[in-house]
């Protein structure tokens, strides 16, 4: 079997496992949609302005993918490394890459599912709008822009126990979400925060997705920053993954 086919097998059983505890999925699906309901829709100045509303909906889509990637990878990997089932899977004749890709596929499916309610609510309750091809371009860009988040999640999962991972994931998730302008638009940032924000992967993702959907200008620092984060976090994830022998006790 090829690596890809095996990755599909791993993704399938990861999804079955997750689906048997439905609350785990519902949390991820509901949180970004609730953020839209509480933070965006009551602010009529944003909700009734097509440009602002579209940006706000896209920001929360990035947030959905960010939260999903950090939680799925960071927590699942950290937890799996503490359970004896994972070492067993590593004795099977499957290259490590197929397990990682399986996780990528299953997380991607859940991430996609968590974006859907945001898009639907955004279309119904705000002036946000996008054509079919724009939505498609947005989804593609969203997937690409999620890469650094996935790799950061993998790094967390392979570098700390699950209890530490929960805390780190939460701090990172909110830090990146606020700092990247996913909750409040960057136009409302003071100058120093805007400068800082331009170094965060969440800001890069936001700019990329907004550019892909609305056709606004894409500043060079956004895609360069995204590329740098992707390469650096991928390299780090690969090092941590290769070094891994399950959890070490001292």
């Amino acid at each position: 079997m090829t690596v890809l086919a095996l990755a599909g097998v791993h993704a399938k059983y990861l999804l079955i496992e997750t689906a048997r505890v439905p609350i785990a999925i519902i949390g991820g699906l509901v949180f970004p949609a609730l953020s839209l309901l509480f933070f965006v829709i009551p602010q009529r100045a944003v909700a009734e302005n097509p440009a602002f509303a579209t940006q706000a909906v896209l920001s929360l889509c990035v947030f959905a993918v960010l939260a999903n990637s950090l939680f799925s990878f960071g927590l699942n990997i950290a937890e799996a490394r503490e359970k004896p089932w994972d070492p067993y899977l590593r004795t099977l004749p499957a290259p490590g890459m197929s397990r990682v890709l399986g996780q990528v596929f299953s997380t991607g499916m859940l991430g996609l599912a968590s974006v859907v309610p945001v898009v639907i609510l955004g279309a119904l309750l705000t002036q946000a709008s996008a054509t079919g091809p724009q939505v498609l371009a947005g989804l593609l860009t969203l997937g690409l822009s999620a890469l650094p988040f996935m790799f950061i999640g993998i790094c967390i999962g392979y570098s700390m126990p699950s209890k530490a991972a929960i805390a780190v994931v939460q701090v990172l998730m909110f830090g990146l979400a606020f700092g990247g302008g996913l909750f409040l638009p960057p136009v409302m940032f003071p100058g120093w925060l805007d400068v800082l924000s331009r170094f965060l992967p969440s800001r890069h993702s936001r700019e990329l997705v907004v550019w892909a959907v609305t056709g606004s200008d894409l500043p060079a620092w956004a895609w360069i920053g995204w590329a740098v984060w992707t390469v650096v976090t991928f390299a780090l994830a690969l090092v941590l993954f290769r070094r891994d022998e399950g959890r070490r006790y001292r």
Partner: peptide, 28 residues
């Protein structure tokens, strides 16, 4: 190579048959 988990650490939400199929998919 065939191995077995040292502790009884099967994923609790998967059915026994699913676990067998899952592991079997790794072999020719």
């Amino acid at each position: 190579l065939g191995s077995t988990p040292q502790e009884t650490a099967l994923p609790p939400t998967l059915r026994a048959g699913e676990v067998i199929d899952f592991v079997g998919k790794h072999f020719a």
